[in-house]
Nucleic acid binder design. Structure first.
Lengths: 152, 152
DNA sequence: GTCGTAGTTGCAAAGACTTGCAACAGAGAG
DNA sequence: CTCTCTGTTGCAAGTCTTTGCAACTACGAC
């Protein structure tokens, strides 16, 4: 089963644009769906599906977890949303444009963001050797930070 | 929470060596623990915790899932076992030495194994830019294979 | 405005793990 | 061989997420 977050990256800087993009794709704008989108756009960072279902801790009405998961998946297919994993634990969702590439230290848990030039270089290697367009927003790169590596 | 599969890579080509390694670390060799190890060593490829608990479909006695998960975690800490994820779905476990680096196409699900020279080059970039010792056995690299990319 | 039909929803149940806890049993000590 | 101490186990309950399904509703058609 593919991870499934392909699809063109939609430009939807605000909620209205996102809703328009949904309609343009022939998708219905139900109350539950709108709520998920509102949560994603209202959150000030990556949030879990649970948080969306919980209405962002009271700021929005609660909704059924199953619908939340289904809608997050739909929104991801459409390209409005992305989700990623940090080590284990629940997945986190962000607006498509906010996705970042992370590095996690397996030993101390430190998280860093990959910079564009490093990322480009790695992607170039994979493109050259395997004609593969890699994307590092879904899973972090796991390894050991300098500090932890020296201690070994 | 770190992903936790640090620790020296133990040399344990067979079950006996693995059990010796456990004892050397001061860990008990209980029936349940031995069973998990037996399943990992008897399996002909990556297996899920469920399969271990199920006794490899009848070849071994069943065991309690909770103990299986705890033991797999312990064995991973000790360096005898590793687990990885392919997209979503249950994690899969292998002997430490059998861990591989994968590339998964987000669109068609195709899986490829990264070759050593490609891997080394990528690791070198991360080492140079971030002094980070990356390791790609836990999560696959996600992206798009040549075929799927051209269709876009 | 009313109809019809798919796309959607909410519930319930299952799957994949994790955690708390009292009972149990390896492994060294005596 | 027995005792003891502490690592482990098995059960049960709890997360996080997916899936089946009947009821419902958004939205274009009339």
């Amino acid at each position: 089963m593919p991870v499934s977050h392909a699809g063109p990256r939609l430009e939807a800087p605000n909620l209205e644009d996102a809703i328009g993009a949904l309609r343009a794709r022939g998708l219905r704008v139900s109350a539950a769906r709108r709520l998920v989108l509102e949560a994603i756009y209202a959150a000030d960072g990556p949030i879990s599906a649970e948080e969306v279902a919980g209405g962002l801790g009271g700021r929005l009405p609660r909704s059924d977890p199953a619908s939340v998961y289904r809608n997050l998946e739909t929104l991801e297919k459409v390209g409005l949303v992305r989700h990623f994993h940090m080590g284990h634990g629940p997945g986190r969702y962000v607006r498509a444009g906010d996705a970042r590439e992370f590095l996690v230290c397996d030993s101390c848990g430190e998280v860093r963001v990959l910079e564009r030039h490093t990322l480009d270089e790695i992607r170039a290697v994979l493109r050259r050797d395997l004609r593969y367009e890699a994307e590092f927003t879904h899973f972090p790169i796991v390894g050991m930070c300098a500090g932890c590596h020296e201690e070994e």
